[in-house]
Simulated assay, not measured.
Amino acid sequence: MAHSLLTKLSHLGTAPCDEFHPRAPVALPSMRTSTVRFNSIDDLHDTYKRQAAGERIVGYGRMGMDTHAAFEQIMCELEGGSRAFLAPSGLNAISMALLSLLSAGDHMLIADCVYGPVRQLDDTVLRRMNISSTYCSMRDMATLEANIQPNTKLIYVESPGSLLFEMLDLPAIVTVAKKHNLLVVTDNTWGSGIAYRPLDLGADVSVVAVTKYIGGHSDLLMGAVVAKDEAVIKQLDINQYALGFSTSADDVWLAIRGVRTIDVRMKRQAESTLKVCEFFEQQAETLQIYHPAYAKDVNHALWKRDALGSNGMLSVALNFTKAQTKVFVEALELFSIGYSWGGYESLIDMVNTDFLKNHAYWNQNYPSLVRMHIGLESVEDLIADYEQALAKARAVVG
């Protein structure tokens, strides 16, 4: 019987309970090990042979045992992939994908709305390895195509983008990529397989910071790289093993725990976020709301066509001075100041607009931007908190 994704997320990664295991815990235990034992030399050699053929079989603890394998299967189900590789953080996962698929002398195109640390990875490690990059807005396919060079190998995107949640036309980007025989790698942390599935839209690789919505409790760091094409999987497999990526079994166990409730958490947070959008729409200081699931967002049509849901992320451009914005952020009582997201708690960050100078989607005339993550608190309480904080910010002179 075929089951839905939501049903699979409740049953994958559980401890076996059958005629061979008549008593079993609900949750698969965290299986920690550094060393793997073999029954015979023939078994050891068979493991090497099967590993060389690309099979996910454990020869050393770095790859992880049953707990890791269970979560990798869950990530494949979430993202619609055939193989998943785990990394110690989301940025590690990005590094794994790019270092596996690019070589010295290669060039890649990067959407100008990507996660900020990608630029740092590019400026340091990749450039030192003679891998070049061009950043551009990917809203216009003619502009994208014009930036392709003879040595371009890959297009790297994030949709929706970081900070401003700019929804990209991923199917159109994939069409351009296929025309020029390029790979498409996308950061899908925003959608995490529940709200958006880039592999289904034609992307070759999906990178997810498990730290965020999949973990869901702000208590772990992890990343995942998911693909379905055999040639791409082989490149990822060989390189991730050579680079020595390893994740803690306990963190993997926490990720399995978190993914059980990802759907209900994200739906609740998405509902609350739309109410927050409606609140800010009524405020005189609001210049623009950035949340693609909101009907007045300029990218809403793309979101409606390609996405399966939404989450608790939004940014709001405010007609406040920096001093007023600082007062607003610091006056909030239910929001912690922080730049992570995806957990159960509400967070806010006063974005340094210098970080947005290279984003074509940003209106350079806007004086301030706040990025918020809406948690699982009562949305009525959050809105009341906004009201008192806005009143204090309005009272600031100069």
Rank of each mutant, 00 (worst) to 15 (best):
T7K: 13
K8A: 10
K8C: 10
K8T: 02
L9V: 07
T14D: 09
P16I: 06
A27T: 02
M31E: 13
T33C: 14
T33A: 15
T35F: 12
F38V: 07
S40N: 09
D43R: 09
D46Y: 03
R56D: 15
R56G: 00
T67H: 04
E72I: 06
I74G: 02
M75V: 09
G81R: 01
R83T: 11
F85N: 03
P88W: 07
P88I: 08
N92H: 15
A93W: 02
M96K: 01
L98A: 02
A104W: 01
L109E: 02
I110T: 11
D112T: 07
P117H: 08
D123I: 00
R127V: 13
R127F: 10
I131G: 03
S137M: 08
D140Y: 05
M141P: 04
L144I: 11
E145T: 10
E145D: 06
N147G: 03
Q149L: 15
Y156W: 08
P160W: 07
M167L: 03
L170C: 05
P171G: 04
T175K: 14
T175E: 15
A177C: 08
H180P: 11
N181T: 11
T186K: 03
D187I: 06
G193E: 03
G193D: 06
I194Q: 06
Y196R: 08
I214S: 04
G216L: 07
S218A: 15
L220F: 13
V232Q: 00
I233W: 02
I233K: 07
D237R: 07
N239T: 13
D250H: 10
D251R: 06
W253V: 00
A255T: 06
I262G: 00
R265S: 09
E271A: 15
S272C: 09
A284W: 02
L287H: 03
A295H: 15
D297Q: 07
V298D: 12
V298W: 05
L302S: 08
N311S: 14
N311R: 05
A317V: 01
A323P: 03
A323F: 00
E330A: 07
L332D: 00
E333I: 02
E333C: 09
L334Y: 11
F335P: 08
G343S: 15
M350Q: 14
F355S: 13
L356D: 06
Y361G: 12
S368W: 08
R371I: 09
G375H: 08
G375I: 10
L390M: 12
K392R: 15
K392G: 05
K392C: 05
V396E: 09
